[in-house]
Amino acid sequence: MNGSNPLSSDTAEALMAAAEEARGRAYAPYSGFSVGAAILFGDGRVVTGCNVENASYSLSICAERNAMSTAVAMGLTRPVAIAVAGPDGVFCPPCGACRQFLAEFSGGMPVIIKGEGGITSIALNELLPSGFSLKGE
């Protein structure tokens, strides 16, 4: 695995597998660009989400925000890591809106992404330097 990652390779691969499975449930009839996300929490639970498109494009939701919103509804607000799986072979980091949304909960967590070069890890705060916060962080 490339990049700096505090997770074991096995954990990162299992999280990516969960994201890839979630990608299979995506509803992407307009773009055809299915994405899955899997978020790991400290107690070992993994919450997944997929992108859900809408004919009114602005009402669509990304996989990452879908997964984190589901986690919050379950009472989970401290993610340890997230894996994002776009189409096979496509390096698919979270979009800017998802980066900001996720930073609310854990700005330094590793983001696991898979592309043609394999699995890599990038800290969320590296993907979103100087993200907005009302917490003074």
Rank of each mutant, 00 (worst) to 15 (best):
R23A: 08
S69N: 13
E116W: 10
I61T: 11
F105C: 07
I113N: 03
A28P: 02
I39A: 02
N54K: 09
P129F: 10
N66L: 09
G49A: 03
V84I: 15
D43E: 04
A18M: 04
Y30L: 14
A55I: 11
I113R: 01
E116D: 04
V111Q: 06
C92T: 15
V84F: 04
G115Q: 10
F41V: 05
N2M: 15
C98G: 00
T11H: 02
A37D: 07
S130T: 06
S106M: 02
I112Y: 03
Q100H: 04
G136Q: 02
C92E: 12
E64F: 02
A38M: 06
L127N: 01
E137P: 04
D43M: 05
F132R: 13
F105V: 01
A26M: 09
D88G: 03
G24H: 01
K114Y: 05
N51F: 04
N54L: 00
T77N: 11
D88Q: 04
N2W: 14
L15W: 03
N125E: 13
G44F: 02
G75K: 12
E21T: 14
I113W: 09
S121E: 04
M109K: 06
M74D: 14
G42R: 14
L40Y: 07
G117T: 14
E21I: 07
I39M: 11
A97S: 12
Y30A: 09
N66W: 08
P6I: 11
V111S: 01
E137L: 15
P110R: 10
S31P: 04
L127I: 06
Q100C: 00
V111M: 10
G118D: 01
R99D: 02
A55S: 11
C50R: 02
T120Y: 04
A85Y: 02
A28Q: 06
S8G: 13
L124D: 06
I112R: 08
E20M: 13
G108T: 12
K114S: 12
S58V: 12
A37L: 07
